[in-house]
Design a protein around this nucleic acid. Structure first.
Length: 348
DNA sequence: AAGCCGGGGCT
DNA sequence: AGCCCAGGCTT
C-alpha cells in the first residue's frame, strides 16, 4: 500500500534543523536564560534589527532594567534614552507600557500563555510565539522574515511574501516541519536564516537542509522568496494629439497590456499624414501606482453621461462597444475616457 | 490592506 | 542607490 491519500511527511526537515542547531547555535547572551523578561526584551530589541547592531543596546538595557518591576518603575524618558540609536522608538515606549501592564494585570508575573503575552503592548504574533515557545514550551512557530525565506526556498514556494496573507500561509508551511521542541526550532530558524540561508549569497553547501531544499535542487535558490515590487507611485506623462476632421476626433484603442487595457483614447502619437488635422496637443499627468497597475488621475473632472453619449454619436472612429471591450480589472474606463475628452474639450 | 517607523550593513 | 533586517501599530 502506497502513501496515497496521505499527507507527505516533512517532519524530518524540522528534526534535521534541530540537530544542526544543537551543534551550531550562536552563543548569544540571551541564549543562556529562559527568563521571559530577558527573552521578551531581546525579541523586541532585535525586531528588524541585526544582532551585531542591537547587542550592545540589549546588554545595556537589561543591565539597567534587569526585571519587569525595575522597568515599570523607570521614567519613560530614561527608557527611551537606552533605545537611542536603535530606531523604531515606539518599541521603547511600548516596552515600558507593557512592563507596567504586567505589573498591574499580572501582578508582576510574566504571563505564560501565548494569548496573554499577545496582549502586551508592542507584542505581536511573532514575539508572542517566540517568548511562549522559548520560555514556556509553547507550540507556536515564530514566523518572521527568516521563516518566509527558508520555507519559500525549501518548498520552492512562490507565495508573495509581501502579501498580507503571507504570515498565515507560511505559518501553515511551518507546521509541516515543526518538531516537538518548538522553542529550539524557532531559534534554529533564526540562526539558519541569519548564518546560512541568508537573503543574499546563501551558504547552501553548508546548509543542513540542502538535501531537502527544493529550490536548491532546482538551482533556483536566488528566485526565492518571491516579493512583489512595492513600486512607488510614479508620475506618468502622456501626450495626446487631437486630430479633428469633418466634425470628428480621431481616437484609438490601447493594447491589452500595461494600463487601461483596450481603453479608447486620443492617440499619443500620430503619422505625418495626420499632422495637418491636428487641432491641439495636450500633455496629461497621471499618478501611476504599479503594484496592481491601477491608475489615478488628477486635475480632471468627470463629464456627464450625456456628453459621453454625444461624443460616441459624433465619432465614427469608435467601432467597438466600449462597455464590453474593457477588462473587468479596470475600475472605471468609461469615466477615464470621458475625462480625456474633457481635456480636449477645454483645449478647443 | 496599506503606510509608517529607522539605523545600519550588504551588494 | 536599493534592499534587507528576530515586526507591530495605525488608519
Amino acid at each position: 500500500m502506497k502513501n496515497i491519500n496521505k499527507e507527505p511527511d516533512f517532519k524530518h526537515i524540522g528534526n534535521k534543523l534541530l540537530s544542526w542547531y544543537e551543534k551550531n547555535a550562536r552563543d548569544l547572551p540571551f541564549r543562556q536564560t529562559k527568563d521571559p523578561y530577558k527573552i521578551w526584551i531581546c525579541e523586541i530589541v532585535f525586531q528588524q534589527t541585526r544582532i551585531s547592531q542591537g547587542l550592545g543596546h540589549y546588554n545595556n538595557f537589561v543591565a539597567r532594567f534587569p526585571d519587569v518591576k525595575t522597568l515599570a518603575e523607570a521614567e519613560e524618558d530614561e527608557v527611551i534614552l537606552y533605545w537611542k540609536g536603535l530606531g523604531y522608538y515606539s518599541r521603547a515606549i511600548n516596552i515600558h507600557k507593557a512592563a507596567q501592564q504586567i505589573m498591574t494585570d499580572y501582578h508582576g508575573k510574566f504571563p505564560h500563555e501565548y494569548e496573554e503575552i499577545l496582549k502586551l503592548k508592542g507584542v505581536g504574533k511573532y514575539t508572542a510565539a517566540a517568548v511562549s515557545s522559548i520560555c514556556f514550551n509553547g507550540k507556536m512557530p515564530a514566523v518572521d522574515g527568516n521563516f518566509y525565506r527558508v520555507l519559500s526556498r525549501v518548498f520552492a514556494d512562490g507565495f508573495d511574501i509581501s502579501n498580507s496573507r503571507a504570515f498565515n500561509y507560511f505559518s501553515e508551511l511551518a507546521h509541516l516541519i515543526l518538531p516537538d521542541q518548538v522553542g529550539d526550532f524557532n531559534q534554529a530558524m533564526m540562526d539558519l536564516g541569519s548564518e546560512i540561508c541568508k537573503p543574499k549569497n546563501p551558504l547552501c553547501r553548508e546548509c543542513p537542509l540542502n538535501e531537502d531544499c527544493l529550490a536548491f535542487s532546482m538551482k533556483k535558490v536566488s528566485e526565492f522568496p518571491v516579493k512583489a515590487k512595492k513600486m512607488k507611485a510614479k508620475d506618468l506623462e502622456l501626450k495626446y494629439y487631437f486630430v479633428h476632421r469633418n466634425g470628428q476626433f480621431l481616437i484609438q484603442q490601447r493594447k491589452d497590456d500595461f494600463i487601461w487595457k483596450k481603453l479608447f483614447e486620443f492617440p499619443p502619437e500620430i503619422s505625418d499624414a495626420l499632422v495637418p488635422f491636428v487641432v491641439g496637443v495636450k500633455t496629461v499627468s497621471h499618478k501611476l501606482t504599479h503594484k496592481n497597475l491601477s491608475i489615478e488621475i488628477y486635475n480632471v473632472e468627470v463629464l456627464s453621461e450625456e456628453v459621453w453619449n454625444h461624443f460616441i454619436a459624433e465619432n465614427s472612429y469608435l467601432t467597438t462597444d466600449v462597455e464590453s471591450s474593457h477588462e473587468k480589472s479596470f475600475p472605471k474606463p468609461l469615466e477615464t475616457y470621458i475625462r480625456n475628452y474633457e481635456e480636449a474639450y477645454r483645449f478647443l
